[in-house]
Amino acid sequence: MAKQGVDPDELTQPFWDAANEQRLVIQNCVDCDRLQHPPSNTCRDCDEGGELEWKQVSGRGTIYNYGVVHDCPVRLLQEDQPFNLAVIMLDDDPGIQMYSHLPGVPVDEVPVGAAVEVIFEPSANGQLVPEWRVIAD
């Protein structure tokens, strides 16, 4: 599926740079050693005091939940409707979620609870974007 391109901004530049190197990094608070995603300019748990870093994670996760999108507001994705839209929980911290279209999984046949691993797919402007595929048994 052809996702919109990405123009990295100051906050997210490290995330997108790592994606272009096929690495998954998540923001982490040095003070409370807690991952947070989506990224923010401050730690949500340290009352804005924590120092933030980008931490590489394993790229493994589990399918937590999913829906099937039939009426998408994003123009570039509309020709691919209906499509799966799943939420992945990271093995490194199940409280951290990421979205996935689950490439290769038939529509509405999503194996909730299955193990997945990160892959990187090019978006409309070439920026690589994290996606997830089911790990075969």
């Binding site: 919109q4 990405v6 997210t12 507001p73 839209l85 409309a124």
Partner: peptide, 13 residues
């Protein structure tokens, strides 16, 4: 295209 911050939540539509 989207700016980097909203892209993290909105690319998937």
């Amino acid at each position: 295209a989207l700016p980097g911050t909203p892209a993290i939540t909105q690319l998937w539509g």
